[in-house]
């Protein structure tokens, strides 16, 4: 590559990065400002005071929200991994009549938007009395067509001789699943895990529907509360909340970026 080409390429990349990163940077920056600075439209805070951060924990029960979000995300992640991998295993390694039909039926649920099923789901949860607790926040998300599809694609690349060899050796189906399939599908499982954790962390509408007590609500609702609590929002405090809320997302993304990329593009290249 010639140096002019390289310079122009980097210039474009830097401009794109700046555009992409500006809102986040500005949010971080605001979280250290006081109200006056924000209204003046300053880009950088005059000093790094943590008062906004202290205040956000005082104004709303952010810690409870964080714990709730973390717990539901983790439960959903584990639930989705288990259900999806077991379903994918059945769709790949077990032979039964109408397997492909059932699979495509299963996959076709991806075409139904979540919002369309929200009302019936809500009524089910309500009649079961699952509102305001983790059960109602997590169980409806366990069966994930996308996850099953992703894992099925990966399982299909596993030579069927591995399964046959274990049949000859007398390994039970579940043990084969647990000791062979799961370990060798690690990268796909990590991908799916991160994906489901983040999706759930960022969920807003469903938790809003099924929770109405502070003890059960999640962070995304907490943020909305911060914004609407007072007539004139204290943007510094809101942004401090935002920064706290996006931190886990960022950490996960940085830690799992390589795996996430690998898993999502897997099968696309082969």
């Amino acid at each position: 590559m010639t140096s002019t080409k390289r310079i122009s390429l980097y210039a474009v990349l830097i401009i794109c990065t700046a555009i992409m990163m500006f809102p986040i940077f500005y949010a971080v920056s605001i979280s250290f400002m006081d109200g006056k600075e924000v209204l003046d439209g300053q880009l950088l805070p005059s000093g790094f005071s943590l008062t906004n951060y202290v205040e956000v924990f005082e104004k709303v029960p952010l810690l409870t929200y964080l714990i709730n979000s973390f717990a539901t995300s983790a439960i959903v992640m584990i639930g989705q991994l288990l259900v999806s991998s077991l379903a994918a295993f059945a769709f790949v390694f077990m032979k039964f009549k109408g397997r492909d039909f059932v699979f495509f039926l299963f996959i076709s649920t991806m075409m139904i938007p979540w919002e369309a099923t929200m009302v019936p789901n809500f009524m089910t949860i309500q009649s079961l009395g699952w509102t305001n607790n983790y059960v109602g926040l997590t169980i409806p998300f366990f069966a994930l067509a996308f996850g099953t599809f992703l894992l099925r694609q990966h399982f299909k690349t596993i030579p069927k001789e591995l399964y046959e060899a274990s049949q000859v050796a007398g390994i039970s189906r579940f043990r084969f699943f647990w000791t062979v399939i799961l370990p060798i599908s690690r990268s796909s499982l990590v991908t799916l895990g991160i994906y489901s954790f983040l999706t759930n962390w960022n969920m807003y509408l469903w938790p809003l529907l099924v929770t109405n007590t502070e003890s059960a609500r999640t962070v995304q609702i907490g943020l909305k509360q911060l914004q609407t609590q007072e007539i004139a929002s204290d943007w510094g405090v809101v942004m401090a909340g935002v920064v706290i809320v996006i931190l886990p997302t960022l950490i996960l993304l940085f830690a799992g970026q390589k795996k996430l990329q690998k898993g999502l593009t897997q099968g696309a290249l082969k």
């Binding site: 001789e161 046959e164 049949q167 000859v168 050796a169 007398g170």
Partner: peptide, 29 residues
Amino acid sequence: PPNKRNLSMVFQNYALYPHLNVEQNIMFG
């Protein structure tokens, strides 16, 4: 079922478990 037939089998692609070492592969099952 295969495991009750008292036989062993060697596959064309060897069917070794990629995440296990040689010893674990040999003793598998």
